[in-house]
Amino acid sequence: MTALLAIENLSKRFGGLQAVGDVSLEVSRGEICSVIGPNGAGKTTLFNMISGVLRPSGGRISFDGIDLSTISPWKFAAVGIGRTFQNLALFKHGTVVENILTGRHTHLRSTVLDAVVFYGRTRKEEIAARQRVEHIIEFLEIEHIRDAVVGTLSYGQQKRVELARALACEPKLLLLDEMVSGMNQEETEDIARFVLDIRDELGITVVMIEHEMRIVMDISDRIHVLNFGRKIAEGTPDEIRRDPAVAEAYLGGQRAEAMAKAGA
């Protein structure tokens, strides 16, 4: 498979703190890839650089053949990078439909004058945007809350709305930052199913930051492990399960050694 995302020797410093150091990885088209590691490992900082929230201190990020350092951060969505956030970033006073529609902004070409007249291209774009939003609402099974005010919804429902908004920009690459944190078992299983469908039915490559190891191991094609800002392992779920460096990062040296001796 061809690499959609290629990261070479990426680093990020905040003053004297090295949050990410010399990380290289590739994500192939059509892959579900997970980035895991203990708290403070640099996972969200890595996502922030891929999505344009932060500029790298060093290294290179190439997406679909484009060097991301050559484009402005607000153009990342337009080239095909969508994202959800660990902390919800929704318009709480807007409806579900209104929130999802904001994800269509990268596909709008109308001028201010076009919008005032609301005729021709503007009207066509509005109709197309609403049709796309309705398709996403059906895909994520949130028809029953489509007109609800987002601030009145449960946490799990709001997370699904944020996922819908990310899909509305029609990304080639979808970054999911701890999608299932705070969800119950049923909601977690629903999200896992949706992630598979996003890849299989919509053809979108997915990269996840996730602490729920059951989901990571069940649906990931490949896993990259960070610890203290550096990549310590890469492989399939089975390879990551057996990697002693991963066990040590998560469990500490003595416990990892005990588990290895016990054949765990």
Rank of each mutant, 00 (worst) to 15 (best):
T236P: 03
V149S: 04
R83D: 06
R165K: 15
E141F: 08
E201A: 08
R160C: 08
G15Q: 12
I32K: 07
T152N: 14
I240C: 01
K12H: 14
A168F: 00
M208Y: 08
N87Q: 07
Y155I: 11
E189C: 02
E186M: 14
G203N: 03
E26C: 07
D218A: 15
D114Q: 07
A249W: 08
Y250L: 12
D218Y: 05
S110D: 11
N39F: 00
S34A: 15
S51A: 07
V207D: 04
E189L: 10
P38S: 00
A247R: 14
H93P: 11
I32G: 11
E134S: 08
F85S: 00
L251R: 12
E8C: 07
Q254K: 15
M179L: 11
V79M: 05
A148F: 07
T102M: 13
H135G: 11
A256K: 06
D64A: 13
P38N: 02
L88S: 09
I100Q: 12
K92L: 15
F76V: 13
L173W: 09
T106V: 12
T84E: 06
R146L: 00
P244H: 09
F194G: 03
D221M: 00
Y119V: 13
F139P: 03
E143G: 12
M49F: 01
M1N: 12
M49K: 00
P244F: 03
A77E: 02
E178A: 02
S72C: 14
L176G: 03
D177V: 06
D22R: 10
F228C: 06
T44A: 04
T111P: 08
E178T: 11
A115W: 04
T122S: 13
L251C: 13
R242G: 02
N99S: 05
R241Q: 02
F14W: 15
D200W: 01
Y250W: 10
A164V: 07
S154M: 09
H105T: 13
F194S: 10
N99P: 08
L226Q: 03
P38Q: 00
E125L: 09
N9W: 04
I240G: 00
S220W: 01
A89L: 12
A168Q: 00
A249E: 10
G252S: 07
E187L: 05
L88R: 11
G263C: 06
N48E: 04
G156N: 11
E201Y: 05
K92A: 14
D197E: 12
R123P: 07
Y250Q: 09
G65N: 11
R199H: 10
H211I: 03
L176D: 05
F139L: 10
N48Q: 03
E98R: 00
H107V: 06
A3N: 14
L226A: 04
H211Y: 00
M1Q: 12
N87A: 05
K172Y: 02
F76W: 13
S24M: 05
V133E: 04
L25C: 02
G15I: 13
P237M: 03
I71R: 11
D22M: 12
D221S: 03
D197R: 08
V206S: 07
G253L: 15
A247Q: 14
S154H: 07
